[in-house]
Design a protein around this nucleic acid. Structure first.
Lengths: 223, 223
DNA sequence: CGACTATTTGATAAGGATCAACAATTGTGG
DNA sequence: CCACAATTGTTGATCCTTATCAAATAGTCG
């Protein structure tokens, strides 16, 4: 069955007892979404636990004045709303398909049952949330003390480590990750191009010299 | 017994079954720390779950270049290292007593046993971590689009909501919360004083007009 | 009192946001 | 298939915020 394969490859449910896995798989359904489609929006009520089964999904938060901060680019196997099922209050996050994608979803109650009765799942959940907190704090510190150039280096390196090269992101999307404007990203990328560390064309960034980026991004996670 | 009272008043263990509470209390010990003492440091191994029993404890992360970002000011009942017991890898956070304080500690294994076998505790843990993530993301957005003045407003309002007035923080400490320099905080506070929204003296900030701050800090949590 | 820490104010410089105009590429409907 | 719309990339000029450096004052504590 396809679904249990998806669960086995997921971060949250991998290495789980076969019987629990089978029971969980029975509750899980797949849903296809198109490029640009919203999977959930801010302040929306949560009734399903969601994971990416195929494709890429951008998870971001918006401010009242419209600024966006991309906080996770989830790929196959990664959860989209780990907190919401546990938390009654609505969350500020938005999830949107970056390309055509498939989402695996399971009713909130079934997820909670499975999770809360499995120390293994709960440990994984806390570990994932812990990494998210570390990552966010690391980005706050970067905003404090690092210039746009260096923040871009680190973002590119993190993306490269996760997705390889080429990276299919627009400057606008990178700006959302780095916490700056499109123009500043472009100028900064121009400098990187001159040093032939990267090459870029519309919606695509190729990392030509990963070693050059590496020295900025060794510590801490990001994205 | 004093310890079970502390647990009952704590965020993580409150409203817990009496028998579990009693069992947990038996494993818990108190430890007094002096002003300025480190309760744990970055990259230190975690062998105990820790909570504040009395006093205030600052939890912050440092960067390699020495910048600090205060990320929680924990008071009575608040946990200091919720993630570490679940996570084998060392964490980047530091906890330091802001004044004389008492810490409640319980061996990591006992905490894990209690937590993982109690859906109630685990739900609380995830909710706390969720708020921490929201808070951190909100601060990233603030760093992106808000000026120092407004960030200080929000920080002061959050602190006021949690601790009331007067607030016993130095400009240096506020700078660590807001993500800027001491000088900028001082200048910004000067402007607030002129409008008689606050008053301040060495290590102390009095909020004279909370309503004036409120309009900046309604949404999102912070600290 | 002396050492230390915190506050205050000024001058300067630089990073980057903002505004604006334009070019290049991709997508769409007739 | 072409014309037009929409998105993305590019560059320049300007201005504002705030970091940085510096120096002086004022509390606090042993």
């Amino acid at each position: 069955m396809q679904i249990s394969a998806i669960l086995e490859n997921s971060i949250v449910f991998s290495r789980l007892d076969k019987t629990i896995l089978a029971k969980t798989a029975k509750k899980t359904r797949l849903r296809t979404v198109e490029k640009g489609e919203y999977i959930f929006r801010e302040q929306e009520e949560c009734d399903h636990f969601l994971m990416v089964a195929k494709g890429l999904v951008k998870v971001y938060v918006t401010s009242s004045s419209g600024a966006r901060m991309t906080y996770l680019i989830a790929r196959e196997g990664e959860p989209l709303n780990l907190i919401a099922p546990f938390d009654a209050s609505p969350r500020p996050t938005v999830a949107r398909a970056m390309g055509d994608a498939v989402i695996a979803q399971m009713p909130k109650e079934d997820f909670l049952n499975a999770a809360l009765s499995s120390p293994q799942i709960m440990s994984t959940v806390v570990a994932i949330l812990g990494r998210a907190i570390d990552s966010a704090n690391s980005r706050i510190i970067d905003m404090m003390e690092k210039k746009v150039d260096e923040r871009l280096f680190r973002a590119l390196f993190s993306l490269y480590r996760k997705f390889g090269s080429p990276l299919n992101f627009t400057s606008h999307e990178l700006a959302g990750l780095v916490g700056t404007t499109t123009e500043s990203i472009l100028r900064s990328m121009g400098r990187l191009k001159k040093q032939s560390i990267i090459d870029s064309s519309r919606g695509r960034v190729e990392i030509k010299d990963p070693k050059a980026l590496e020295k900025y991004g060794i510590d801490s996670l990001w994205i």
